[in-house]
Simulated scan of single mutants.
Amino acid sequence: MSQLPEQSAGPSVPTSADVARLAGVSRATVSYVLNDNTTVRISDATRRRVREAAFDLGYVPHAAARSLRAGHSRMVLLPAAQQLPGPLHQRFFTDLQTDLRRLDYTVVQYGSVGLDADEAVRAWAELRPVAVVAPGGVHLTPHRTGVLTRSGAKAVITLGPQPVEGAHALVLDQREVGASAARHLLSRGRRSIGVLMPQDPGLAVFAGPRLAGVLRAVETSGAAARAEPLPLAYEEEPAARLAARWRTLGLDAVIAYDDEYAMLLMRALQDAGVGIPEETAVVGAGDLMLGRLLRPRLTSVRMELAAAQPPAELIDRLIRHPGGPRERHDLLRARTVVRESG
């Protein structure tokens, strides 16, 4: 009778008991040290000995087992559902992850590309996170938020231009970006303003509110002014075609989606012989260093994040005290930095 070949034993997985033996302490002490538990007094020398033993053995705590013992997860899920518009948002997520880890949360980024909204939410729920911080690329509804809370999420927080019913909201109100640029141009006597709208669908969630901010500022200005959306792909040829017919549009200013689109059009307008800012003032958004190196230097809307409480501490509080009223926190501040282009 044939027999199955014996399976070669793989390397043994180190356990907390192994760490305890090597360090000469109890397993409870290992748990307190490696989970950064400060409620129990343990000498610095013992903590150092435990960490050195864990390092030597290649031991890391088992997150799932820790969650089972605690009765809840420590995972905060950050779905990567959309393109992030610029370095400001990248810094926000970097700082958020760093601060959450300091608070002893396991931060997991999850890609949802190719999934529709219902599929994405179910995929998030399968991971049983204790909290979800969802960018605006996946449209949350009260039903989808309920799927997450029923799976164990104590806090569902959206990050985007508008709050979502049933979820806490960190609001980046992009309307103020467009409004700030429009108010500046109107104060300079510009009355016919083009608004560059990127054709990249991933940017629509931010571009739409910025346009709305421009339109609102023009409408409430009391001036005989107008604003015209101008769709543009981020490529040289479409920019050159737009610049070639610029004088037929009757525009004396343009607000670009961001500094990169502003620089793209500025170069095309200059190549077409359109004077900046004599014929057309140009305003970008993002205040990139490269825009300050152009000639003329680029006027731009600078965006800053400001919150009464650091977002990681806010998320921690919402996790520890679930069930309260839904909170809204406005994070975005916008101001126009005036330079030579408009």
Rank of each mutant, 00 (worst) to 15 (best):
L103V: 04
L100Y: 09
P161I: 01
A153G: 15
D95N: 14
L127M: 14
Q90V: 14
A155K: 14
P87M: 11
G137P: 01
V107G: 07
L96P: 10
R91T: 10
W124C: 14
D95Y: 04
R91K: 14
M197A: 00
V133M: 11
D95Q: 14
T106P: 03
H168S: 13
A117K: 06
A117C: 07
V147T: 09
S112Q: 09
R188I: 06
G160L: 01
A131R: 13
A125V: 00
R144T: 05
V108C: 02
E165I: 00
A123Y: 00
G136W: 05
D99I: 04
T94M: 08
T141I: 09
G146D: 12
V156I: 07
A167V: 06
G189L: 08
H168M: 12
I157R: 13
F92P: 13
K154R: 15
H168P: 13
R150A: 15
H184V: 02
R183D: 13
R183F: 03
G152H: 11
Y110C: 12
R191M: 11
D173Q: 03
W124G: 10
P161Y: 07
L196P: 07
L96I: 09
Q90P: 02
S187R: 15
V108K: 01
A181T: 03
E176W: 08
T98Y: 06
E165R: 12
R74S: 15
G194E: 03
D104F: 00
E165Q: 13
